[in-house]
Write a protein that binds this DNA or RNA. Structure first.
Lengths: 222, 222
DNA sequence: GTCTATAACCGGATAGAC
DNA sequence: GTCTATCCGGTTATAGAC
């Protein structure tokens, strides 16, 4: 039974690697299920036995990415308790590990905005991955030397996850050499974020932060 | 020749009305081109002669909406020079005129985030419509009694267009009765926006607004 | 439970005759 | 401009082998 299971997993993995390679080299739309089946020496029916549909192959890619990110993040966090550095590491590692799959990911980005789409980062199907990613940021913050309290402490991790998604999304369309524009965006925006965090406790800022949180809660409530 | 042209336009209009009706009643995905062809008493090939593809029918819907919005906006602006009221009118009219097509629009929203998609509000194909919509806001601001200067005056219209898109997008997923959540969001966010505009000229705010504008320019540059 | 082979369905899109 | 026939690829169905 264990051997049986292994065999099945091998087939699944074989289909998966072939698919991801083809997605990147040929393009996601251009890669047909028939082609994936052929190149992984599996019958079309078999491919559908292992993956409910084409998109589920991509879901496996997401899961794998998040798993890798977590491992790397934990390791990096041992090196510093500076939250800004930790956050920057999370961003840069994401981009670095995605860089091989840019073509592929740019096609997937088209579904980002639709919470009902399987592959959207806001979908029910990606909820687990999303929560892991947010949790990773939350841990990085909690064990850092940056001490926050109140609503900001609660909401910041998910806001920063949103921020991270925006950076990835920007990067996907960024064709500047060496992704220099993305790097500029990251450094400028990180500076701004930490400046805002710093002044967020100032009294005159409560008049602004309060309404902002209220709006965010309304948005989240749907 | 003129009669010939009219005939063609009639066919096009017939296909269009049938399509939009079906999109709303049956759903966009559920409505097939074959069905549109059949119900408008046109052959499938003919339908494709008038509309390059299914999405181009939707593009016509966008154009029509923006045209209506402009007419209504111009009329409303005669009644007041208060920019906040004018902006609120733009938002509310959009939602009111869209309310009939909510089901249909919710499916379209899935492509919102992909600038390469024909139907995205950020696409090349929708550029003309987008610029009309921004121009409408720009005019409403320029002829209002709110006097701004510098970068804020230049950028505010497109930022508010983005804001408007977010509201529409939120509304699409808002199933609260009477869209009360959207209305709450609008009033809260409008208050915040105008509060921010007011304090934007304060000296301590330049330290924040400057970086924000810089970031926005980087984002726009891709 | 894992896999193959093959045919068929469905709907967007196109070709080409009239 | 209009029509019919056809392609194409995601997906499903079926029947059977190990």
């Amino acid at each position: 039974m264990d051997l049986e299971k292994k065999k099945s997993e091998q087939t699944r993995d074989r289909i998966y690697s072939v698919a991801v390679r083809l997605f990147q080299t040929e393009g996601y739309d251009e890669t047909t299920m028939r082609q994936i089946a052929a190149e992984s020496k599996t019958a079309l029916g078999s491919t559908y036995y292992h993956f409910k549909n084409k998109e589920e192959i991509v879901l496996m890619f997401y899961k794998q990415s998040q798993k890798d990110a977590k491992t790397q993040c934990n390791k990096f966090n041992e090196s510093t308790t500076d939250f800004k550095l930790r956050l920057k590491n999370i961003l840069l590692y994401r981009l670095e590990s995605f860089s091989k799959y840019k073509k592929f990911l740019s096609v997937l980005a088209r579904n980002a905005g639709d919470p009902n789409h399987l592959l959207s980062p806001f979908s029910r199907e990606t909820k687990e991955i999303r929560e892991e990613a947010i949790g990773m940021i939350r841990d990085s913050l909690a064990t850092s030397k940056l001490k926050l309290k109140g609503e900001l402490l609660t909401l910041l991790p998910e806001l920063l996850w949103l921020y991270q998604m925006s950076i990835v999304y920007f990067w996907i369309s960024d064709n500047s050499k060496g992704s220099e524009k993305t790097k500029l965006l990251i450094s400028e925006s990180l500076d701004l974020i930490f400046k805002l965090i710093k002044i967020s406790s100032f009294p005159f800022f409560r008049n602004i932060l309060g309404p902002m949180f209220r709006i965010y809660r309304v948005v989240k409530s749907i």
